Amino acid sequence: MHTFEANGVTTAYQKTGRGAPLVLLHGGEADHAMFDDLVRALSDHFTVIAYDQRDSGATRNITATYSLADLADDADALIGGLGHDRAHVMGTSLGGLIAQVLAARHPDRIDRLILSSTWKVNKSPLEVNADVFRRLASYRADTAANAPKIAEFFFPPDCLRDRPELIEIFRGNSRDDGQKARRGGVLAQPVAADLSGFDRPTLLLAGSEDRLIPNAETFAIARDLKRAKTRVIEQVGHVSSIQAPERVAEAVIAFLNS
């Protein structure tokens, strides 16, 4: 891991491969490691930059609260700080929200944009999928015991039967209580994210078996974009970069090289 300092944050990142830069923005409870297999599948085609957001992985930041706007500004600073005028950007789940705010606040920093398994900024998770998010909240009272139930919202049943080790992802993480509170509070802070002026090509990517974020919620973002395409990866759940990295890479490469 390398580090980059800006905005009072020491951001830990990996930079792998060759070609045009592609920045990956991970989900809310993950870190850059969720993209490990995807990075390997993409690194022959792009210079892939996968980093840990605030209160994630090896990144270090002060204990002040922050918003999606702050996280988007971190991404902007990292891209510029690594010497790139602009980069392709892919955000998944919460990372997709950060990517939308980045596109609104720093549109010239993005070449092409990919929004995967995500939803419209400022729409609460309860508006997106109330029953599932309420059940997840109850299960997280005891993640060690409820990890198998939590995993079912992120990976399809067949995937979990074939790869039961994925359940361990949900038994807890290394964040302390302060880090969890700051990450959990991000979505409670409204942020300006007007995409009407963003004119870069955008791909909205979803897994057909995503039980957490309905495909319709991801594809609804197209209404705010000038140049949007949609693509469904069949038989894949919410965390497509772990379940089917080669198929995700195929979709990403086809879009970015089109």
Rank of each mutant, 00 (worst) to 15 (best):
Q14H: 12
K15H: 08
T16S: 14
G17F: 07
R18L: 10
R18N: 13
G19H: 05
A20M: 09
P21V: 06
L22Y: 09
L25Q: 04
H26R: 05
A30R: 13
D31S: 07
D31G: 07
H32T: 08
A33Y: 02
M34V: 10
F35S: 00
F35H: 04
D37V: 02
R40G: 15
R40C: 14
A41I: 13
D44G: 15
D44P: 05
H45P: 09
F46H: 14
V48G: 07
I49C: 07
A50H: 08
A50V: 11
Y51A: 03
Q53I: 02
R54A: 11
S56G: 00
S56H: 15
A58K: 13
T59Y: 13
N61G: 07
I62K: 08
I62H: 12
I62C: 06
T63R: 15
T63Y: 12
T63W: 09
A64S: 11
Y66D: 09
S67N: 02
S67C: 03
S67P: 05
D74V: 07
A75F: 08
A75E: 04
A75R: 04
A77H: 02
I79N: 11
G80T: 02
L82M: 01
H84S: 00
H84A: 00
D85E: 15
R86T: 06
A87R: 10
A87K: 11
G91Q: 14
L94E: 06
L94C: 03
G95V: 05
G96D: 03
I98S: 04
L102K: 03
A103I: 06
A104S: 14
A104K: 02
A104F: 02
R105A: 13
D108S: 12
I110G: 02
I110H: 05
D111C: 04
R112K: 15
L113S: 12
I114E: 01
I114G: 01
L115Y: 03
S117N: 15
W119Y: 15
W119F: 15
W119M: 08
K120E: 12
V121Y: 01
K123L: 06
K123F: 04
P125G: 09
L126A: 14
V128Q: 07
N129Q: 05
F133Y: 14
F133P: 05
R134N: 08
R134V: 09
